[in-house]
Amino acid sequence: MTITNLLFPAILALSQATAVADGGTVLFRDETGRLAVTVFASPSPLSAGPVDISLLLQNQNGLEPVLDAEVSLLLRAESSGVEIRAHATREQARNKLLYAAPVTLESGKWLVEAAVLRNGERAEARGVIDVAPTPEMAMSYLSYIAFPLSMTAGFVFRERLIRRKLKGRA
């Protein structure tokens, strides 16, 4: 049994209790080599479609953010075996302490492997994430439907106010 296998339950346990930071929801945290790696995903809650995977790299001593690493991601779908490779960079992240990569994921469980290269040293972190199915189409259109509906309702109310005023004058 490898150390990684021993770590998996801890990783899974950590990943059950979700937290949200910029970069989105904390998916899992791993300590590998001299680095502490925290992996985030947004949007929250995580659903199929375009997703941002972000990583925070910190020195294990003092937890100072590490900003000069090269980070690459490998995501593998458990059910279909589909693999996605991406290069995570700070330029793609809103929070410039993080390394981010946009990917498109289908629903289901995904194994996430992050490889960090810094000063010639390589470290890896692994975890599993659960991607929910996409929301119903009507829900995603909701905001576009709500605007004309609310404006129409406001117009109907306005017309009633005008009629009431005219009746009062009569």
């Binding site: 209790a17 979700t18 937290a19 949200v20 904390v26 945290r29 502490a36 925070l56 937890l63």
Partner: peptide, 12 residues
């Protein structure tokens, strides 16, 4: 707030 307990800590 548990989310802050679980979030990575910055600068110690």
């Amino acid at each position: 707030y548990p989310s802050y307990q679980l979030a990575p800590r910055l600068w110690g």
